[in-house]
Design a binder for these strands. Structure first.
Lengths: 171, 171
DNA sequence: GCTGAACATTTGACAACCTGAACCTTTCAT
DNA sequence: ATGAAAGGTTCAGGTTGTCAAATGTTCAGC
């Protein structure tokens, strides 16, 4: 906090700007792909998380950066459609493990494969450039220690964060 | 559908994965920064769009990829807090131009500057590497024709897309 | 000039997402 | 055994988003 950065590197600013547009693109693609399978974005994210195996609700909430009470509803709807089931953890009966059903797994897999995001914009780069990009991104992410865990797997379009009723009080 | 792409370039896959994590990070940061100023993500996005000048509601809806009726509500709340005003376009009285007030402009500017995302992960890169990253991202985005227009300016974290009631019918 | 199609915005109903506080059950330390 | 702590759920309340049906405005064609 002691450091004053009144004017940021102009290149940095532009990168942030590009990133914002990329985020927009990615987010849109993801929601559309989910909607095409009658899933909402949030439901798809949870389902994607479950591809690695059963997971306690609390862990889901942490990964998605939202309140646990929120997950309850999402899992309710997912369960109502037969995409997941709740099983209580024999180790700790407070915990409920959310498990993807076959339908859930295959829906998530389909969704992941339908994500054209990879092919479209990335096709504009040469092989070596892609490797360059990969290295740069990797270094950025490593620096933040933003590891959700093992990386490859979910195509989750990102965290949820505080937005709703709380701080923002409208007229 | 005719094209078979069973196995994508492994580097591409990894880039997509890294991108997804980055998108998540960015998204979260953006929402947090907005919440810190008592704004929701959607409100911040609209405000960011308005940094370039007044804009018809219809255009806002197009840029954010959502229904115009949705914008009505967001602008309502923004207006209720004195961040924007509605003025009818003298050229076409059907159109309402949304204009950011001084408060709105400065809130958006503050938000933009508070985005630590730039400093944190981007600090891990050298100056030249940042330029490299910028060029690569630029090429990716140009290829998709995802130009909202002149690029630099808004920090809008992206589109909205279908999520709600429509296709997803819960139990 | 008048009529009707097309457009921009709004309204209302409804579903999903999200937070925050209160509550229940289970676990664990004392 | 008792009480604090943790995992989930429920409930109330606000925001975002969709869709369908208004309302007001513009524009083409007659």
């Amino acid at each position: 906090m002691a450091e004053q950065t009144p004017t940021v590197d102009p290149i940095t600013l532009e990168v942030v700007d590009l990133m914002a547009r990329l985020v927009g693109l990615f987010h849109r693609e993801y929601e559309e792909a989910a909607a095409a399978r009658s899933l909402t974005g949030a439901q798809a994210k949870v389902l994607a998380l479950l591809r690695r195996g059963p997971m306690p609700m609390r862990h889901i909430a942490q990964t998605l950066a939202c309140e646990p009470s929120n997950i309850t509803g999402i899992v309710d709807r997912l369960e109502g459609r037969g995409f997941v089931t709740r099983e209580s953890d024999p180790q700790d009966r407070r915990v409920k493990l959310v498990v993807a059903t076959d339908a859930g797994r295959s829906a998530s897999a389909e969704l992941r494969e339908s994500l054209n995001f990879a092919r479209e914009p990335l096709a504009a780069l040469e092989g070596e450039e892609r490797a360059q990009l990969r290295d740069l991104l990797r270094r950025m992410l490593d620096s933040t220690g933003a590891g959700t865990g093992p990386s490859s797997g979910d195509g989750g379009a990102g965290g949820a964060a505080k937005a709703g009723g709380g701080t923002a009080k409208a007229g």
